[in-house]
Design a protein around this nucleic acid. Sequence first.
DNA 1: CAGATGTATTCATACTTGTCAATATATCGA
DNA 2: TCGATATATTGACAAGTATGAATACATCTG
Lengths: 120, 120
Amino acid sequence: MNTSDRISVDLQEGVDTMSYKEDVRMIKALADENRLRILECLHHGEKCACVILEELSITQSTLSHHMKLLCDCGLVDSRKDGRWMHYSISEEGKNRFKDMFSHYLETIDSDGGCSCDKCE
Amino acid sequence: MNTSDRISVDLQEGVDTMSYKEDVRMIKALADENRLRILECLHHGEKCACVILEELSITQSTLSHHMKLLCDCGLVDSRKDGRWMHYSISEEGKNRFKDMFSHYLETIDSDGGCSCDKCE
DNA sequence: CAGATGTATTCATACTTGTCAATATATCGA
DNA sequence: TCGATATATTGACAAGTATGAATACATCTG
């Protein structure tokens, strides 16, 4: 994926600000210690909420809050089974994240000179 | 890089909480619309602060704040040239970021069953 | 149906963070 | 040396967020 691929997503109106906002929302979903722990918890497959809760030092309502953020950004899938909620990494979400990060972390070889009209 | 690679980084004491904290710090460095714009600005090579400033709708002091965060987390290198500051993506930092994200976004095939002793 | 249990929601609170104005610092040019 | 210019720092403030207690909701079990 290259720059123009992503920019083309942004149509006339929202000026491309939309894409940044959504990307920030995705990134923020990862920007928390406990949510990183939760993701590691899900590395090996689906887990139910009570198992995740035992691995963390937080209350149940806080876990529910974190799971909501992870699900809302598309990185985690949820499945309700009776009283229990099962969570797992979404393959599709995972790939969307990888693409996004690749985009911002890429560098494109060029002359590398500063295009500033003042300095240099 | 696999899970044990990263966990081995955390020695006895800080209990591995250190690694999470550092990872969160890195992720938060990306979790802002303007900082994402700055990174795109640097895709094609080194740029001086005044050029970056022209591309964003923020004041100079705000830009300075953002650049500090990006540099402190190791993703951006800075070079002072007289009055001007030149910024560029750090290749090494970029790779550290990629490794970290790969870690949290990986999934390891296994049975996938829930290890909970209550449900199912 | 009634109590127990797993999860979600609401609310209040402490903390973090993005922003700008004002100011400080550093460097250049005359 | 003195003013201009580029960047950094400080301080204040509004907005966002992680947290837990209390409570609501849903589902199971007897």
